[in-house]
Write a protein that binds this DNA or RNA. Structure first.
Length: 738
DNA sequence: AGCACGCCGACT
DNA sequence: GTCGGCGTGCTC
């Protein structure tokens, strides 16, 4: 057969979700109308032996293709009639792919909700919405006493005085059905945006600091800027967000609000719904695939004006982009920790720059990077120093426990403090970032310890389940009754976990209501919410928990906060540890106190003179941040330099190191004396889940040098024969160095 | 990442 | 004599 003239024909370059740093060339489908294709449209293509969903990135002349045209296949199907991603969206994703040195096809895929990745049609189901009937308005929720779920849902409708789409209340589907049947709710056509009534009347007046912050962001609404809003818990950050959003809505612009993972989203969602009359969608892990599809399309097609979402919502296209807000910007959940390891905070800023819109970052404890960018005048700092209302700053107290008797980690002065607090009818909150009963079991006879067989870590005692569990690989076994080694020695728990403290507290404070909040007690769906409700309605005297206490929830009746073990955060191989500890202390402290109940924060430590603690307590978070930045500067650490961490693991003990040594050789050959190569070293936990782990850290004073070196070396790294024996990944701007 | 092809041990 | 182990090679 004679070769046809291919010079005039077009081929499509397509991003396919495989870990390969290139696009794939295809012929258009047979009989496809010549000019209908546009970048940003999804297609299905034959790929290897199977079919995959890809995104058209470019349409180009066949003669410009670098691959043998005879090998090209045809696109099987075009899935969209309009591009789902705009040119700007594609630009951002392309930039992110290069910045994070991650395969373009996988980066593009993260911009889509799962349904669209699977090739489902991009059709926005215009759903009806639900509102109160006259009967519903006049029915007391309490009348539905046999049906708490229905009661709650009715109250939501009555309090918000608005209609809801199914997606907004999908978790209450059963209650919704019942209320419809009882004639308390009615299904009606979806409301259209009433531009005269975007916002419901509110009685809140901003204080001067809030006003300044609001004006500052509003004045930059139609151009790029980054504002860092620093304000302690209760200082009214949310009110600033809402007033700025309100202004954006006046211009009919859309707003993307990003939050840390889980927990706080419902509260903020509720406040926004009470405030705004515009369609709002949520995008986070509580939502299923079809709900997320609906939310994504609503923002992409412009029918929703506000999206509230977590990290994965970052890339959602916007029809009328106006503003990005990122709350709790210091939170580590904004950094994706596997695969495409992007920082939602950093990419949000890149996105805003590309779209020429403002970004508003908020935190009580801003990251050192962001504060550094303030000093470099890249970000504008907006401060809310006073607590809104008349709340007072908590008092900090460093409690020196050196040589003090401890009762399962509780010093006598602390026990007394708890007693006093409870006697006043107030709540105490105790924080210990270690779950389980005790971090290790040891044999008093022979010294045997409950080591995990697959990790360089100990198995943790979970007493109530009578099990040993490894928190790193999930390995489990029942609690041994006799020492597996000597068969005679007495087995003892060593160290403290929340479960053990709980037991101690029950003995020390009999008859008091104690709530333990950690991963083990809140696993059950809805359990956390139930406990929070219990705490806020006053049915708790002592609250004990881990990290999850530090995030968001405010407990107004808590007047005593105790951090039981500060010291474990003071000494770490990771230079980020100090920053994280300081943020944690301030965040936990922020849970306490309100109005006339001044909060106390007690830190138990054997390092009462440690400069981190004294600076933080005596001079505040900003002073701590300044001195921490000074240390980073002297040590040449980020943000005064830039890092990339190459991690690798394999079940073979030698392969990871051999691979990294080969990488080092490549780095030598592409000599770049501006980049420091640290390692290879074994990871702080050298073995995890049976895998041997090694890492190599690259550091450079200038980002350009680092990325230039990576651009040169990575294509060769991929081809190394040693690379085939390991799993490896590259982390740009790592925040966890282990 | 999938998913094939391709040469060496325990089983009908 | 086969079924299948996971080494390595490719995907427009």
């Amino acid at each position: 057969m004679a070769k046809c003239d291919t010079s005039a024909k077009l081929i499509w370059q397509i991003a396919i979700p495989v870990p390969l740093e290139r696009l794939f060339d295809y012929w258009p489908p047979e009989h496809y109308p010549l000019n209908s294709i546009q970048p940003g449209m999804r297609v299905t293509v034959p790929f290897g032996k199977s079919h995959k969903v890809g995104v058209v990135m470019r349409v180009m002349k066949a003669s410009d293709s670098s691959v043998d045209l005879n090998r090209l296949k045809h696109v099987a199907q075009v899935l969209d009639t309009e591009p789902l991603l705009s040119t700007k969206d594609l630009q951002l994703l392309h930039w992110a792919s290069r910045y994070y040195h991650h395969a373009i096809g996988e980066v593009i895929a993260t911009a889509f909700p799962v349904a669209l990745r699977q090739g489902k049609p991009a059709v926005l189901q215009r759903e009806n919405c639900y509102g109160l009937t006259k009967l519903g308005r006049n029915t007391e929720p309490a009348q539905l006493k046999r049906a708490p779920k229905q009661q709650a849902l009715l109250a939501v409708f009555q309090n918000s005085q608005q209609t809801f789409e199914l997606a907004d209340i999908a978790e209450h589907k059963a209650a919704l059905k019942s209320l419809l049947e009882k004639g308390l709710l009615i299904e009606q056509p979806r409301q259209t945006v009433d531009t005269d009534r975007l916002e419901k009347p509110v009685g809140l007046v901003a204080n001067p600091e809030q006003l300044h912050a609001i004006d500052s962001v509003i004045s930059s609404l139609h151009r790029f800027s980054v504002s860092l809003l620093q304000g302690v818990t209760g200082s009214g950050k949310t009110e600033v967000y809402m007033q700025v959003i309100s202004e954006a809505l006046q211009y009919n612009l859309q707003v993307l609000v990003l939050l840390p993972e889980i927990t706080l989203t419902p509260q903020l969602e509720q406040r926004f719904r009470q405030r705004f009359n515009v369609p709002m969608v949520c995008f986070h892990s509580k939502f299923n695939d079809s709900q997320r599809l609906h939310a994504w399309l609503s923002l992409q097609q412009g029918s929703a004006s506000i999206m509230l979402g977590t990290r994965s919502a970052l890339f959602t296209p916007m029809q009328r982009p106006g503003l990005i807000i990122l709350d709790e910007e210091h939170d580590s959940s904004f950094k994706q920790q596997e695969g495409f390891r992007f920082s939602a905070r950093d990419v949000a800023i890149a996105r805003a720059k590309m779209l020429n819109i403002p970004v508003l970052l908020g935190s009580a404890t801003p990251s050192l990077e962001s504060l550094f960018n303030v000093t470099r005048q890249r970000y504008q700092l907006l401060e809310l120093s006073s607590r809104a209302g008349n709340a007072i700053e908590p008092v900090f107290q460093i409690l020196d426990i050196r040589n003090k008797p401890l009762q399962d980690g509780l010093s006598e002065p602390l026990i007394t403090e708890i007693q006093t607090t409870l006697a006043r009818g107030q709540q105490a909150l105790l924080f210990l970032n270690r779950r389980g009963y005790a971090p290790v079991q040891i044999c008093h006879g022979c010294g045997w310890v409950s080591r995990c067989g697959r990790c360089d870590a100990n198995m943790v005692i979970h007493a109530s389940e009578r099990r040993l569990r490894c928190h790193h690989c999930g390995a489990e076994q029942s609690l041994p009754k006799q020492c597996p080694a000597c068969k005679t020695g007495e087995l003892q728990p060593l160290g403290l976990g929340t479960e053990r403290i709980e037991q101690t507290l029950t003995v020390l404070f009999p008859g008091k209501n104690l709530i333990r909040l950690d991963r083990d007690t809140t696993q059950r769906k809805g359990a956390l919410e139930a406990y929070l409700e219990q705490i806020n309605s006053g049915h708790a005297d002592i609250i004990l928990g881990t990290q999850m206490l530090a995030k968001g929830h405010h407990f107004p009746d808590v007047t005593l906060v105790a951090i039981l073990d500060v010291d474990s955060g003071l000494f770490s191989v990771d230079f980020h540890a100090g920053e994280k500890l300081a943020q944690m202390i301030v965040q936990v402290a922020g849970r306490a106190g309100r109005a006339n109940n001044r909060g106390r924060v007690v830190l138990q430590t054997r390092q009462p003179q440690h400069p981190l603690l004294t600076t933080l307590i005596d001079k505040g978070y900003r002073a701590f941040a300044e001195s921490a930045l000074q240390e980073r500067k002297l040590a040449g650490l980020p943000p005064y330099s830039h890092q990339a961490l190459l991690r690798t693991h394999a079940s073979d003990a030698q392969a990871p190191q051999a691979f990294l040594q080969a990488v080092c050789q490549l780095l030598q050959q592409n000599k770049n004396d501006k980049t420091l190569v640290l390692g290879p070293v074994s990871a702080p936990m050298a073995r995890r889940a049976g895998q041997f782990r090694f890492q190599l850290l690259l550091q450079s004073a200038h980002r350009k040098d680092l990325h230039h070196l990576l651009d040169l070396v990575l294509p060769q790294v991929v081809k190394l024969k040693e690379a085939k024996k390991v799993r490896w990944s590259l982390d740009i701007d790592p925040v966890d160095l282990y």
